[in-house]
Nucleic acid binder design. Structure first.
Length: 911
RNA sequence: GCCCGAGUGGCGGAAUGGUAGACGCAGGGGAUUCAAAAUCCUCCGCCGCAAGGCGUGCGAGUUCGACUCUCGCCUCGGGCACCA
């Protein structure tokens, strides 16, 4: 008996698609286009289930839209610059370029068997000089358009390795390799002027109707538009040149509750005080011994240093406030100085309690308003409160009203100015690293900073150094110590000059790749006609972790590219629709143990360790509802067969079952070894099973848990579908083969009885599956296909009706399990490739039911039901309801208090 | 710490404010088989013999009716500007 053999089927159809160039994107003005893009991968060398899920979702959309008549662009590339390549070179030797391209080749080879409808002719990697050369050209255009500038910014500095560290390389305030406490250090760096676009980037979010609300909200908060008051506090006894401190506040209404002034350790005044005061210097140095991440600053213990300086309150010259240097105040937000109002800000309150400062209430709750105790009183700004110290508004007013009045009052008094500020900072793109796109400028003693000539692009990364491979074991940036690469002629005056040795943040690479895919080998960054046809990305799919930075930077880049003529204005928002998919998770197998190690004094010690095991290395068995895991290798060593459930049970009976702990699912990660290799899944079950599984069960936006039972079930189901189709094909063979059915045409299935029942179910399925795909409800589409398979398997309809049903079902499955779908289409005599067949349409006449089951609720609980014609009037329904046994019993002779009839839906009797 | 999500049977989940638990997994029972695998049929939220009662993280509220809307909590996850 023939059976479903994915390995044969999948290879065969992938070859057919290749020969047919089915997925080659065609610039066809006669057809509407559809651009599907998944966030491109970092070439780590191995694909993981998260990739499979991401690309399968995109593939479903791409294949579906193609069937619907669109000219589809579905490309793939590699986000290939970044730290891991350099880290690998440091740890294992070799060159980042070789490592990266090797990984790309490996990953492409792992990805191809998935049968994705990708136009591989457009593939590129961001580390291709062809790509980053165009990026350099754009950088020069941006520079000329005033979108790039240089300024000082702080970095994490490892004083031992003498190198800049990424935030993730700072662990508990120490460098990951050297273990030395990290310092903040200022460097001159390149910045994109994204803050100029803050307002525009914020406003344009409203137009992104097909983006998730949560992503838009995160971006809104990130951009952080605020209206506040900028004002100055007069400084009585400041050092030379400091007679006032500029403060920005979003709560000018709480000015009367001010009890201290705080300035950033990086504030010019703090720096001036450092010079003459070792204590100040020590405190500031301590503050600088922290990483640069906001998270670290915010979670660190709040500390302040009383400078001894006093400022005068603007409303009362007699009222003096102390000036503190505080470690939680950021220099790059606002003016780097704040006034603290402890009563209405928790952080300020904690600070005030710690340093014994006043807590002055400026307002209390309307109802039983109490003075502030351990918790700051911070009601929503829209809530009315009772003011104890209003200075320009009524005693009862909301925070919002008070803020507006306070700003007007201060402006009128000449105390300050109402200003709008954004939290969004300019995008620092300089990286002091090798494996990135070189910034194409030259530093000339005579001419200053000069952009490289475009004809000299790309400025390629040097592969060797003085004829020898670059040594990555030395910390720091190899470009910085590479004389022949670094030394060059000034593009302007021709005198000896030095190249910029900073490379670009990898976010730059990923901020325009979507545009490059429209013309991947053009001699300019984009090709106008191609961009005009293909942009925008109609559906972008990726992880929620990119909700802010990558997506915001891409939106900025689209604007900058439009200004510099590289994108049409319609592409100002490059992604029409966004979908953020969840992760793939797996449970964790972990055992605690002891390991021998060497202590500092050289003696041998035993330390506890966590050992993790790969899912493929353990066998799971269940005892009375409790699941236990055992190592495969241990069973084999004891002469037992891990595939025999009885052996596993027997083995576990004599074993301490707590040896391997099964801990709940988490994102698949190498360190926890809770990973399932897509390659081995494809080898044992086939790509269609992997694809079907990642689409089923969980809604796409949520995490999906990989379970071997789930994968087996998916595989079983596909085998069942194959068998049903094969059975129909065999029946057809007995009845004269495909030709006999072709000639009979569509009328072959009869229009009544079992055939009609099957067709009704089929058309309902067409409708539901289509809706599911269109709304990213792939899991419900899968469920509807399961249900229809059950119907078809049990159907006693005529052979032509069942053939039609199986073929349409194959079409509905084609976006998800394309190989199996082609195979079924072929065995049932479908014409051409299913990938090129038009999407089936549901016949509305077959979707309507003439009678419905109306549930009857009594007091909101379902108690009975009624079978009535779909369009029966409410009055008639009421009569039937009152005659119902359950209703009569509940009414007990009385009349209902209320009777709600929702026609065609439900009835509720209130008694 | 700040910002954003998510919580439904033993498990993954379904459900335009209208029958909570579709579909799948696991589990029980049966058929087929010398036997097993595979396959097919069937049962399956919890408590209860039953009648019935209870059930969508917890606590309130709106509504004839709430998984769905509002408010307050709890737990878990994502982001926090040099991981990509």
């Amino acid at each position: 008996m023939a059976r479903y053999i994915p390995a044969e089927i999948e290879r065969k159809w992938q070859d057919e698609w290749e020969a047919d160039a089915t997925f080659r994107a065609c610039h066809d003005p006669a057809r509407p286009k559809y651009y599907v893009l998944e966030m491109f991968p970092y070439p780590s060398g191995r694909i993981h289930m998260g990739h499979v899920r991401n690309y399968t979702m995109g593939d479903v959309v791409a294949r579906f839209k193609s069937s619907c008549g669109f000219s589809v662009l579905h490309p793939m590339g590699w986000d290939a610059f970044g730290m891991p390549a350099e880290n690998a070179a440091m740890e294992r030797g070799g060159h980042p370029k070789d490592w990266t391209y090797g990984n790309i080749a490996d990953m492409r080879a792992q990805m191809k068997p998935l049968g994705l409808s990708i136009d591989w002719s457009r593939e590129f990697a961001t580390c291709d000089p062809e790509y980053y050369g165009q990026q350099q050209a754009m950088f020069i255009d941006f520079l000329e358009a005033g979108l790039v500038y240089r300024k000082n910014a702080v970095v994490n500095w490892d004083p031992v390795d003498m190198t800049v560290l990424a935030n993730e390389q700072v662990i508990e305030g120490k460098g990951w390799r050297s273990g030395a406490p990290v310092e903040r250090r200022e460097l001159t760096q390149w910045f994109f002027k994204i803050s100029d676009f803050a307002e525009e980037l914020l406003d344009a979010l409203d137009g992104l109707e097909n983006w998730p609300e949560k992503v838009k909200l995160m971006q809104r908060n990130w951009i952080g538009k605020s209206r506040g008051l900028q004002m100055a506090f007069g400084l009585a006894d400041g050092p030379e040149g400091f007679d006032r401190i500029e403060v920005y506040t979003t709560r000018p209404d709480t000015l009367m509750g001010a009890s201290f002034l705080g300035i950033s350790p990086d504030h010019p005044l703090a720096k001036a005080l450092e010079d003459g005061n070792p204590e100040v210097a020590a405190f500031c140095a301590e503050c600088r011994r922290m990483g640069t991440s906001e998270e670290e600053l915010e979670t660190a213990e709040k500390k302040g240093f009383d400078t001894g300086l006093r400022v005068r309150h603007p409303f009362d010259p007699e009222w003096e406030l102390p000036v503190y240097i505080a470690n939680f105040i950021l220099m790059d937000y606002g003016t780097g100085a704040i006034f603290g109002c402890p009563a209405h800000d928790q952080r300020d309150l904690d600070f005030a309690r710690k340093y014994g400062l006043d807590v002055i209430d400026t307002f209390v709750a309307l109802e039983n308003g109490q003075p502030v105790g351990a918790e700051a009183f911070v009601p929503p700004k829209t809530e009315k409160v009772r003011w104890t110290k209003p200075f320009a508004w009524d005693e009862v007013a909301s925070g919002e009203e008070a803020i507006d009045a306070a700003i007007r009052h201060c402006e009128a008094q000449g105390i300050g100015e109402g200003v709008t500020k954004f939290r969004l900072r300019d995008w620092g793109l300089s990286r002091q690293r090798y494996w990135g796109c070189p910034i194409p400028v030259v530093h000339c003693d005579a001419c200053g900073v000069v952009p490289e000539k475009k004809e000299n692009l790309p400025i390629e990364l040097p592969y060797d150094e003085g004829g020898k491979p670059i040594d990555f074991s030395i910390p720091g940036n190899p470009l910085d110590r590479h004389p022949t690469w670094r030394d060059c002629a000034c593009p302007s005056c021709g005198k000896p000059a030095k190249r910029e040795t900073d490379t670009m943040d990898t976010f730059v690479d990923s901020s325009w790749y979507y545009a490059r895919f429209t013309a991947p080998h053009a001699a300019t960054p984009t090709d106008r006609a191609e961009a005009e046809y293909w942009m925008n990305v109609d559906q972008y799919i990726g992880g929620i972790e990119h909700a802010i930075l990558h997506l915001l930077y891409s939106r900025f880049f689209a604007r900058a590219m439009q200004i510099t003529g590289h994108l049409p204005s319609k592409a100002i928002e490059p992604f029409d629709a966004l979908f953020t998919q969840g992760m793939v998770t797996h449970e964790i197998y972990e055992s605690k143990g002891l390991r021998k190690s060497r202590a500092k004094d050289g003696s041998e010690v035993e330390i506890a360790f966590d050992q993790y095991y790969l899912p493929e290395d353990v066998v799971i068995a269940e005892f009375g509802g409790e699941r236990s895991a055992v190592l495969r290798s241990e069973m084999v060593a004891d002469g037992l067969d891990p595939s025999n459930p009885q052996h596993v049970k027997d083995y576990l009976d004599v074993l301490d079952r707590s040896q391997i702990k099964i801990t709940p699912s988490a994102k698949m990660s190498k360190s926890k070894k809770n990973v399932v290799d897509p390659v081995s899944i494809i080898e044992s079950f086939g790509a269609d099973t992997a694809r079907w599984f990642v689409l089923s069960d969980s809604p796409p936006e949520r995490d999906v848990e990989w379970t071997s039972a789930g994968a087996e079930a998916a595989h079983r189901h596909l085998g069942r579908v194959w068998r049903i189709a094969n059975g129909i094909a065999e029946e057809m063979g007995q009845g004269g083969g495909v030709a006999a059915y072709e000639s009979e045409g569509e009328g072959a299935a009869s229009t009544g009885g079992d055939d009609l029942t099957l067709r009704r179910a089929l058309h309902k399925t067409i409708h539901d599956v289509t809706m599911g795909i269109e709304s990213f409800g792939f899991n419900t589409s899968v469920a509807k296909l399961y249900a229809f398979t059950n119907v078809l398997a049990k159907s006693t309809a005529s052979l032509p009706a069942r053939r039609e049903a199986a073929m349409v079902m194959a079409q509905l499955m084609a976006p998800m399990t394309p190989h199996l779908a082609e195979e079924i289409w072929d065995m049932l005599g479908g014409a051409g490739l299913i990938a090129r067949a038009p999407w089936p349409k549901a016949d509305p006449a077959l979707l309507v039911e003439d009678t419905v089951t109306l549930p009857i609720q009594i007091n909101g609980k379902r108690r009975s039901e009624l079978r009535v014609p779909k369009d029966m009037s409410a009055e008639e329904v009421e009569k039937l309801v009152l005659a119902d046994d359950a209703v009569a019993k509940a009414l007990d002779g009385g009349a209902p208090k209320k009777l709600i009839v929702v026609p065609g839906r439900i009835v509720n009797v209130v008694v």
